[in-house]
Amino acid sequence: MDILHAFSVDNMRFILEGFYMTLKVALISILLSFLVGCVVGTVRYTKIPIVSPVLGVAVELLRNLPLLLIIFFARFALPDVGIKLGPMNATIVALTLFEGAMIAEIVRSGLISIEKGQIEAARSSGLSYVQTLWHIVIPQGLRRMVPPLVSQFISLLKDTSLAIVISLPELMHHAKIVIGQSYSYTLPILFVVAVLYFAVNYALSLAARRFEARMV
């Protein structure tokens, strides 16, 4: 049967190669966007003159643009100013900028949620502003950031599929090629793709729950 042929060794190997690219791009983008988001979110929280407002404008701009537009910009517009990026690097840049802006807002909101009374108590006990931020605000804010951060990371992993439009050889790109061999491959291949996405995202959710439980 054609449906069984969809699960051939060659097809599954090809699908897993695409899945590897998806995980690779997602992992790099998660690390970079988390770093960018933490720095930008913290700077915005500290309200540094000129710098914080400028970063605020950048964050709002990126958050309100379609990710697909940012991917197109990184791949096709940057070469006009001398920056040429391949499909993988263009995707990583786009995801880092977009998700970094989202994470920056999560970080800022998490820090703002800490009660002012605790900050005032820390300052009155002799801690500097930086020490208060590092020892009081950030540790508590991090606990509150875990659920939205994990949700954002899951969204990032799923958003890698948008890179199919610039021919990044990721999971959906390879799935499309396999499905192109036979119409009867559509259901089984999409089922495999769904299982792979679900497995990783569910694992992230479980890890986040355990991490959050340990921090309580």
Rank of each mutant, 00 (worst) to 15 (best):
A26F: 12
G41P: 05
F19H: 11
V150P: 02
R75K: 15
L127T: 07
P188Y: 10
L190Y: 09
S184E: 14
F198A: 04
L55V: 08
V137L: 08
A121V: 11
L97N: 09
G110P: 02
G100R: 00
L65G: 06
H174N: 15
G180L: 08
L171H: 04
A90F: 03
G141N: 01
M21Y: 13
I83K: 11
R123N: 14
V54S: 10
S29L: 06
S8E: 00
L157D: 00
V150A: 06
L69R: 05
V36D: 03
A6F: 00
L16T: 10
Y185T: 00
L156K: 03
S8W: 01
L162C: 02
N64H: 09
P87W: 00
Y185I: 02
L142A: 14
S109H: 12
P49N: 08
I164Q: 05
I138K: 11
L190M: 13
I114D: 09
M1E: 12
R214A: 13
A213W: 12
L196I: 05
P139E: 04
A199V: 11
T42E: 10
R44E: 06
L62D: 01
R144T: 09
Q118H: 14
Y129V: 14
N11T: 03
A26P: 07
H173P: 00
G37Y: 03
F19D: 08
F34C: 14
I114P: 05
V59K: 06
I136N: 06
I30E: 04
V9D: 06
N89E: 09
S161L: 06
A208S: 15
V51N: 11
S151K: 04
D159K: 02
N64F: 05
T96H: 05
E170C: 00
A122Y: 03
S161E: 10
L127E: 09
A104L: 11
A175W: 01
I166K: 03
R108S: 03
P79E: 13
I164K: 05
K84A: 11
Q152W: 01
S33Y: 04
L190R: 02
Q152R: 07
L95M: 13
T132Q: 08
G18T: 12
V39A: 09
N11Q: 03
S109P: 07
S125N: 03
A104Q: 08
T22Q: 10
I48C: 10
W134K: 13
P49T: 07
V107N: 01
M12R: 01
Q131R: 09
E120P: 11
M12E: 08
R123M: 15
E99K: 07
L157C: 01
V216Q: 14
A213I: 10
F211V: 15
M1Y: 12
E99D: 14
V146H: 00
V178M: 01
P49V: 09
K24V: 12
L168C: 07
L32T: 13
K116T: 12
R214Q: 14
T42H: 10
D80A: 13
L97P: 04
V137W: 00
P169M: 08
